[in-house]
Simulated scan of single mutants.
Amino acid sequence: MHKRYPELGQLIGGYFHEDYDLFGDNFGEVMDAYIEGSSPDDRAQVLKEIERFQTDNAGQLEAAYRKEFIDHIDLSLWGFTYTSFLEEIKV
């Protein structure tokens, strides 16, 4: 599905979707669920993929995010921009 960013795609698509509340009531709880359910290697790969995604899409981050990951939730409702969301999910 997300060939270039598979672990990042798993985090976003698997945890931050319309049913995110299965994992928690807020951003922190959802991230805690991801951390609990993932390995240190997975989390290290997410970090690498976020950094690569940011570099690959400098100047067009929002459009690239929407194209690559689709908006499953409205990040602004949680007080995030696309840039701040990616920074916040670095684990």
Rank of each mutant, 00 (worst) to 15 (best):
4 R>C: 07
15 Y>L: 09
13 G>C: 05
24 G>A: 07
13 G>S: 12
80 F>E: 03
32 D>H: 10
64 A>V: 06
7 E>F: 10
27 F>N: 02
47 L>N: 11
10 Q>K: 15
38 S>N: 09
68 E>K: 09
47 L>D: 12
27 F>K: 02
8 L>D: 01
15 Y>T: 05
33 A>Q: 08
23 F>G: 03
12 I>H: 01
91 V>M: 13
11 L>H: 02
8 L>E: 01
82 Y>K: 06
29 E>M: 11
42 D>C: 09
87 E>I: 09
50 I>Y: 01
12 I>G: 00
40 P>D: 15
23 F>Y: 15
42 D>Y: 14
39 S>T: 15
4 R>A: 14
5 Y>G: 02
59 G>N: 08
76 S>P: 01
12 I>S: 00
91 V>G: 08
40 P>Q: 10
90 K>L: 08
73 I>Y: 03
85 F>H: 02
15 Y>V: 06
89 I>Q: 00
28 G>M: 09
11 L>Q: 02
60 Q>G: 11
78 W>G: 09
5 Y>C: 04
11 L>C: 08
73 I>G: 01
33 A>R: 10
23 F>Q: 04
12 I>W: 00
53 F>Y: 07
71 D>M: 11
7 E>W: 07
91 V>L: 15
79 G>S: 06
53 F>T: 02
36 E>Y: 10
24 G>E: 03
52 R>I: 05
72 H>W: 10
70 I>F: 09
45 Q>E: 14
13 G>E: 05
75 L>V: 06
5 Y>T: 05
48 K>M: 12
55 T>G: 09
86 L>W: 00
32 D>R: 14
17 H>T: 07
73 I>F: 04
46 V>K: 03
55 T>P: 00
52 R>Q: 15
31 M>P: 01
62 E>N: 10
87 E>D: 14
10 Q>I: 09
46 V>D: 02
5 Y>K: 05
19 D>M: 10
2 H>F: 13
79 G>K: 05
15 Y>E: 06
16 F>I: 03
9 G>N: 04
68 E>H: 08
83 T>Y: 13
59 G>C: 07
46 V>Q: 05
1 M>K: 13
12 I>D: 00
48 K>V: 12
54 Q>L: 14
37 G>I: 06
86 L>E: 00
84 S>M: 05
38 S>V: 08
57 N>I: 04
70 I>C: 08
52 R>T: 12
75 L>M: 11
79 G>I: 05
3 K>V: 12
7 E>A: 12
65 Y>P: 00
45 Q>D: 10
26 N>A: 10
75 L>N: 02
48 K>R: 15
60 Q>S: 10
29 E>D: 09
87 E>T: 11
45 Q>V: 12
49 E>K: 06
34 Y>N: 03
50 I>T: 04
